[in-house]
Nucleic acid binder design. Structure first.
Lengths: 152, 152
DNA sequence: TCCATATTGACATGATCATGTCAAATAAGC
DNA sequence: GCTTATTTGACATGATCATGTCAATATGGA
């Protein structure tokens, strides 16, 4: 029996401090993992947002999905376009807001990143019970909703 | 009964994506909270590291405690020193590595930040059970240990 | 003591991010 | 239709971060 533990507010403080550290460590972990593919964590995330969308979307929509700045996503997508990983298609509904699409080369890079990621993610998740991971995810998702509402 | 849920690796993926979002939201939340005090999340964290250390430490030690870059912490601490929130004291063991100490003004700023933080943290933690928060914290701390070991 | 190594703060540089502005294009209200 | 507000990409600027280098200092081993 671990005892009563900390008060909720202190527990949240410790959670937050760990969150900051894990965030940085995870980004560095991802960077090392996809560096051989010419990717970074940020580029990988952008590719993921493009894949996750059923239909090609303009950059501003991808930025919203990512919770990131429009301008930064624009820069990343432009870089990816310069390297042939994504291409721009005309948008019938908007002359300036082109649609971002994966090229075959971009699809290959994304699939290669996933292939490198999966076994490492399984190793990293090993040792945790399904309940523990699910609870941690649910807490973070609930925090996200509250913070987003608070930031209105 | 929520059912079997996702495979552990996918659960970790969702956890990670939520983590990135919450990290950014929490930093913005903290920035808004301590802005009236002339602080930022980064400055507040630096002050916290100074307070958390029992003895005054050089900047490089604080950076290690924070898991941050030596150079960035140095810049932040220099800024804090310029505004009179911290002061440098001679280090008997090292002529160049001065010891960072809170000034009374810095202590006031830190206490004021905590005073603003506590009720908001309690409100943010409300609705979670102690077990949920503790589990989330433990998962993140375990992830941190694994990622730090992996980054060696 | 002497020398190799590690630590520390200062400095420089490029990358990334946050923010604001602008013009073009679209959407909504009257 | 016409006017106004919103969206979108391009651009600029400053802040922050990541990284490397350097000289001064401290530490440990021979």
């Amino acid at each position: 029996m671990p005892g009563p533990g900390l008060p909720p507010a202190d527990e949240l403080t410790e959670l937050t401090l760990s969150l900051f550290r894990v965030n940085n460590l995870m980004l560095a972990w991802g960077d090392r993992m996809v560096a051989p593919l010419g990717l970074t964590s940020a580029r990988w995330q952008a590719l993921g947002a493009i894949v996750a969308a059923e239909r090609p979307q303009p950059v501003a929509w991808l930025a919203r999905d990512l919770g990131a700045n429009r301008q930064n996503v624009q820069r990343i997508v432009n870089d990816l376009e310069g390297e042939g990983l994504v291409s721009f298609a005309p948008n019938p509904h908007h002359k300036r807001a082109q649609l971002v699409m994966l090229t075959p080369k971009g699809r290959e890079a994304y699939d290669a990143a996933i292939a490198r990621y999966r076994p490492r993610a399984e190793a990293l998740a090993a040792g945790f019970s399904a309940d523990e991971l699910a609870t941690a995810r649910q807490v973070l998702q609930a925090l996200r909703l509250r913070l987003e509402a608070d930031a209105d």
